[in-house]
Design a protein around this nucleic acid. Structure first.
Lengths: 196, 196
DNA sequence: TTCAAAAACTAATATCCGTTAGTTTTGTGC
DNA sequence: GCACAAAACTAACGGATATTAGTTTTTGAA
């Protein structure tokens, strides 16, 4: 009956994956059922399997798409010849943009990765460890340069990543402030502090 | 066979709740089964119901215990006659202590509250909104005082709360640094920034 | 119009879940 | 050691889950 609509430039599988991201974000991977996903699309659950392999595969697609977007951007930033502070600034702004523009997918990658099956789980965690390792190097570089304070670099990376991740709670306040102003405020806070 | 051991100063129900927090944190509320919880305790699943009402009740106990600990401390800080900066400092340090000392429970309260049934869900969210509202007031006070920069107060609260919440990832690095030094680093970063 | 491929459908399966009922074992105060 | 309460056990139920098999409908190009 109701056919699954492929978006202008995207396969049917991608349309399903996008809907899955929204559902997984709202309900969590385990609590989200294929029946409910099908209902959101306007189709019976078994029909989904004409387009996808399994529920787990949907999660894989979401997590790894997001992971590689972040990885690519990190490489771009790493290769830009500029100060450590400027690199961190760019990276923080990218995280904020991703959080606002691909909210559901980023949320799922951040929270539901633990339901990945092996070997995807290990692969994902390795990628994340690499990402954090490279950010750590960046902060270390800044400390050595005397651009940055001598804050424990691991703690600094954690604080930055956690702060931007926390934008998942910003959805309800989206209209309070422009995206540019939001970026500026967070970068200012994280790099220069809250105290005058 | 294996009886459920009540801890020195705690009921059997509390012993089960503690184990449930660990399991809910590891697997997520939906993916954690009563059978697995029972197995971790060394008992058959139906035996648990001699001590608890339901799976959902375990989640309620965890979430509301944590919520009230935070609420109590916030009131203590609010009533201390001191600067806004000092109040924020105290609050941040309390969050960090909670994160390190009651890791599983705080994690569950932060991540699994969405599986609370009504009316507990609404109640919990109301409490959290109140908490954030009072922190917002605190930041506003600091801005008015000219203790704090004119950063969008809502963004500042979000950044602080997210940064401390991110300590859930610190478990694997616990030995790198003392708890006191961790507190100092994060407070320094959040209040005075990363740049020299 | 035809005909093959794509994609929908219905029916069904095996598994797991939280929980209840009913029974037996264990622990404790006399 | 006896009785009563606490807490364990086994068996089972109703419901939800992801997925498969087999069939029918829809689509689109020749």
């Amino acid at each position: 009956m109701a056919k699954i609509k492929a978006t202008a430039n995207g396969s049917r599988q991608e349309a399903i994956t996008k809907k899955a991201a929204i559902l997984f974000r709202k309900k969590g991977f385990k609590a989200a059922s294929m029946r409910e996903l099908a209902e959101n699309i306007g189709v019976e659950a078994p029909s989904l399997y004409n387009h996808i392999g399994s529920k787990g595969e949907l999660l894989q697609n979401i997590c790894f798409k997001i992971a590689s977007l972040f990885m690519d951007q990190l490489e771009v930033v790493e290769n830009s010849k500029t100060t450590a502070v400027e690199k961190l600034d760019k990276l923080i702004r990218f995280h904020i943009k991703m959080m606002l523009q691909s909210f559901d997918e980023v949320f799922v990658a951040n929270h539901e990765w633990k339901y990945l099956d092996e070997p995807y789980l290990t692969n994902f965690l390795t990628q994340r460890k690499n990402y954090e390792g490279k950010m750590l190097q960046l902060v270390n570089e800044g400390i050595k340069n005397k651009e940055l304070k001598n804050i424990h670099p691991h703690v600094a990376v954690l604080t930055i990543l956690s702060a931007v991740r926390g934008l998942e709670f910003w959805q309800r306040h989206k209209k309070e402030i422009s995206e540019a102003a939001l970026e500026d405020n967070i970068v200012e806070h994280l790099l220069k502090g809250l105290i005058k």
